[in-house]
């Protein structure tokens, strides 16, 4: 290894740590904002051009489930399923009028801001997207993001003036308080590295079945109650376990999102512990 090579390697290592520190101190935010402004048209074009090929390759390589998956049908299905879920939710909530009134007081009218997806996290470890609306458009950290079919997509975790970063519910760091609509069993829906969702901390006594809707519970104040997350795809119960293992299929096609809606009327709340 020559001195020149060593110098380059050392320089890259130092630059890496310096950039990590700069990112930690949010010094890179303006640079990221400008870069996205400049490159997002190119990225969107490239992404649009490549998508049919990617869909074709993915259909071939993903042998298990999706040879007949049709994107338009999926979106339509998502919309109809959401309507069904909302209808069921209303039916259930009518039985608890007080709770319903409380929800209505908290969220009198949903106001959405639509935004294009301009970039995606390119690592395999994270599930984050960037959208073309930022603090200048009224987007704030903590606001929730839904698909056009009104299924939960994620939460805004970072903003710049023109863009916002949305951590998807499938991100390994995501955790959403949720309930199973039919049985009212509660738990936490978490993301996985492979983009799947699992509902944790569901007690053994809860009666669950495949196809049950999973919606946000509103517990903790970070998400409004009643937003559809997905449907139960499998339930594994073992006598020796404290909790059931529940796998959830998200309704929104998160890997193919092009446009999302930010729920700007919902402001997350931070609950303080009782004195």
């Amino acid at each position: 290894m020559t001195a020149r090579t060593l110098a380059w390697t050392s320089f890259i290592a130092i630059a890496a740590f310096a950039l990590m520190a700069a990112a930690r101190l949010t010094l890179l935010d303006p640079v990221e904002n400008v870069t996205l402004n400049v490159t997002s048209p190119v990225q969107t074009t490239l992404s649009t051009v490549t998508r049919p090929v990617a869909d074709w390759v993915n259909n071939i390589t993903d042998a298990g489930a999706l040879s007949d998956e049709n994107r338009a049908l999926r979106e339509e299905n998502e919309r109809l399923t959401n309507e069904l879920a909302r209808a069921r939710e209303q039916e259930i909530q009518q039985q608890t009028t007080d709770d319903l009134n409380l929800v209505r007081q908290q969220f009198p009218a949903d106001v959405f801001l639509d935004a294009d997806v301009v970039a995606r996290d390119s690592s395999n470890a994270r599930n984050v997207i960037a959208i073309g609306a930022g603090s200048g458009d009224g987007v704030r950290e903590g606001m929730i993001v839904v698909s056009e079919g009104r299924s939960l997509v994620g939460v805004v975790t970072k903003t710049s003036s023109d863009h916002a970063w949305v951590t998807l519910i499938t991100d390994p760091k995501s955790a959403v308080s949720a309930i199973v609509q039919e049985s009212r069993a509660d738990g936490v829906v978490s993301g996985n590295y492979d983009g799947s969702l699992v509902m944790e901390f569901v007690g053994q006594g809860a009666a669950l079945k495949e196809g049950d809707f999973v919606v946000t519970s509103g517990i903790g104040g970070r998400y409004p109650a009643g937003v559809v997350i997905g449907r139960v795809s499998s339930v594994q119960t073992a006598e020796q376990d404290l909790f059931q293992k529940v796998e959830v299929d998200h309704l929104a096609s998160l890997s193919k999102l092009e446009k999302v809606l930010v729920l700007t009327s919902f402001v997350p709340r931070t609950l303080e512990s009782p004195q």
């Binding site: 950039l19 640079v31 990221e32 996205l36 995606r120």
Partner: peptide, 10 residues
């Protein structure tokens, strides 16, 4: 890092 929504340093 900048266009792929990751930390450039990482």
């Amino acid at each position: 890092g900048l266009v792929g929504l990751q930390s450039p340093g990482v």
